[in-house]
Structures are given as structure tokens and as C-alpha cells.
Design a binder for these strands. Structure first.
Lengths: 194, 194
DNA sequence: CGATTCTTTGAAAACAGTCAATCTGTGTGG
DNA sequence: CCACACAGATTGACTGTTTTCAAAGAATCG
């Protein structure tokens, strides 16, 4: 069942199991949503009204700069998807978020997130840890981006997220790495020779 | 006085002014520290024991990969400096943090941060907002890194942090942008022609 | 099967990196 | 106060990597 994935997720981040009552409050704050492949959760210019918890499926967040897609983020099961800036500031987003596979999602608005932070301590703790982990992960990616060659960034990605290789087409992996699909194809060719 | 900068900072992030008692608890958790230019707050291999609030001065966080410095982060007045990963996980850091100018800092340990989160609601709120803002800023930088040319990244930096230009030498700006000092010099030359 | 999308390959051009030399400005010690 | 050393910035020539554009091969899906 959809909400069980969320319960498991929350329990991972807190020392003690969340109580039935608290979890009830949490789950009431979410709306289930099914997205078909290629459907959008967010389109550039709109405000990101929802943060999605991915129960099943895969998504991406990307900008479109004169015809070129730049993927900043992939999401799979048990990950959160949203444009944090737009979601919290209620400003129009420059990003698109769409489904790369059919998805089962749980959606929550910013208001509800705030309410849960105040009323469910375990949620508050989890949310803080999430932000914290997210910013650590982002910092790693920045370091990779400025200090490693495209080849090393690719090798790092294989190590850290091998599942991405099976799941996403190469042109999207290339976009995520900040290179062209042609370059990635050549890097793979070169690596295969070893 | 050193702590006044911190009080101002906290009040910026909370709707109501922090009480004297609460601020007392906060300020007791910090240790003032003066760092001379070129002195280290953190050296690679060590655990990042402190997060520093910069009252005065400027710092940088960088890795050293076979002789090349890669600056991931600059800090100036009213910014926080620390390797978040090492600081929270208590793992050895791969980064160095040193002073680019003589600095007045306020240092706090991870234990104290946790205590303040539990005992001072305003601190807790501020800390959560800080993390949140930080991860938004990091996401922007990733987007820049993967989707913009070096020239556009440089122009963006001038817009978002013009003070960096006056304050830091060009070779460090180059490192922050992920290019060589020579490349940045040529980019500047090209831009000057317009 | 045909259509579409994804990947690979090739050749040329644009871009960024390396190495070495020169130039500029700053600060220190004689 | 000058001369010198030093760090940072610029320039040139060269090399290497990545992009671009175009075309040809796979793979996938209806």
C-alpha cells in the first residue's frame, strides 16, 4: 500500500517508530497521485505547488535553455521531488519535473509541510535531516563538477548510483553530467578498451 | 562586540526578537577565535570539529587534488563555514578551510548545536532555514555548473556576488568557477572588448 | 513491420588546459 | 627611499578535450 512506503521511510530517520496517531496525521496530509510516463508534475513558469514522495517510478528535474535539456536531479523510489526554491518561496520555477516511468506519488503542499513540522516532532526531525543530507549531497556534486573530468564524473556516478545506468537513457545521463550524449558515448568507448 | 553580529543574524531569520535568556544560552555555546590570514580552521584528514560564524574576515573551503586547489565555497561576514559532512558525521574531511584575511570567528561544536536545537526554538528554526537556503543555493550552483559556459558562470558570479571580485584574487575566483586562472584571464579580456 | 528514439561514428571547429615567459603591483629589508 | 623579491595576472604557442553538425546504425514500441 502507498502509505506504507512513507511510514518505512520516516522510521528510517527516527530512532523510535512513529505512533499510529502521528502517522495518521502525516498520511492525511498527502494526496496520492498517479503520473504516466512523460506527464509533468511541474512546468517551468509555474509555482511548484507540491513536493512528491516517489513510491514507485522515476522522475527528473530539468531546465530548458534554448532547446537543450539540463537535468539537475533524478528521483527514484523513496526520494523526494520538488523545486525547493519555488516550493518554499512560492515563486515561479525555471524547472520542469516530469515522469520518466509511470509513477505512484504522494503529494504534499507547503502549508501542510509547515503544519506537520509544528505538530509531529518526528516529521520535523526527519525534514531537518532530509535538508541536511540533501545539502551534503549537493556539495559533493559541486565538488565533482568543478574538480573532476567528465570521465571521472561518469565513473563516480556509476559507483554512487549504479541503478541509474540501467534505468535512464544515456543522453539523460550525459545531461546530468553536464556533457553532450556524443561525448558520453566516446567516454564509454574509451573506458571499454581497458 | 562579537556576539552582537550573531544576535542580529538570528533575528533576521525569526519573526520575533530573541529573548535575552535565550540569546545568553546561544552565546555561551560559542567560543570566540581569532584567525590570522593563511591559518587553518580545518585541514584535510581531520574531523571538522567546529562550525564557524564569520564576524569579520573571509575564508575559503577547498580540496587539494594532486597539487591543484579546488575551492568549493567562499565565506565572508555573517556566513557560516564548516564541512557539513565531516561536522555532522564526525568523519575525516577531504577539505581544508583557511583564512583569506584576518578573521574574527565564533566557533561551535556539533554537540552544542544539537543542544541548542532542543533548547532554543528560535535557534532550531534558524538552523532549519539555514540548511534550506544552503541547499537551494547549492542547487543553483549545480545548475550553473552543468548548463552554463565558463563565461556565463563568471557573469553570474559577478551578478550574485560582486563583492567577491574586489575581495578575492582572480586565481581563486577561477578555481571557484572550475577553470584555470589563464582561462579566466582570457574570458575577462574577451568581455572587456564589448 | 515501420516509425521513432537513442546511440555511435566521423570530421571540423570551438574551447579550455599546459607550460613558459613576461608584465604588474605590493611590500620588505637594506 | 630605492631595489629587490614575490605573488598574481597576462600573453603566446601548443596540445588535448569537448562540442557541433551530419549521417549511419541499433534498439524499442506501437
Amino acid at each position: 500500500m502507498m502509505f506504507e512506503a512513507l511510514r518505512k521511510y520516516i522510521n528510517q530517520y527516527t530512532s523510535s517508530e512513529i505512533s499510529e496517531g502521528a502517522f495518521d496525521t502525516v498520511s492525511k496530509s498527502f494526496t496520492p497521485k498517479h503520473l504516466l510516463k512523460r506527464q509533468f508534475l511541474l512546468q517551468a513558469g509555474d509555482v511548484c505547488k507540491y513536493t512528491a514522495f516517489i513510491v514507485k517510478g522515476a522522475m527528473r528535474q530539468y531546465s530548458l535553455v534554448n532547446g537543450v535539456e539540463n537535468i539537475v536531479y533524478f528521483g527514484i523510489e523513496n526520494w523526494w521531488m520538488s523545486d525547493r526554491e519555488s516550493f518554499t518561496m512560492l515563486t515561479p520555477s525555471q524547472f520542469n519535473i516530469d515522469a520518466l516511468e509511470d509513477c505512484d506519488l504522494l503529494l504534499i503542499t507547503h502549508d501542510k509541510v509547515q503544519l506537520l513540522k509544528e505538530s509531529v516532532p518526528q516529521w520535523n526531525k526527519m525534514a531537518a535531516q532530509m535538508d541536511h543530507r540533501h545539502s551534503i549531497a549537493m556539495q559533493k556534486r559541486i565538488h565533482d563538477a568543478i574538480s573532476l573530468t567528465a570521465e571521472d564524473r561518469f565513473l563516480n556516478l556509476i559507483k554512487s548510483n549504479p541503478e541509474f545506468m540501467q534505468r535512464f537513457p544515456q543522453n539523460m545521463i550525459a545531461s546530468y553530467l553536464g556533457i553532450t550524449p556524443e561525448s558520453l558515448s566516446r567516454i564509454r568507448k574509451k573506458l571499454a578498451k581497458k
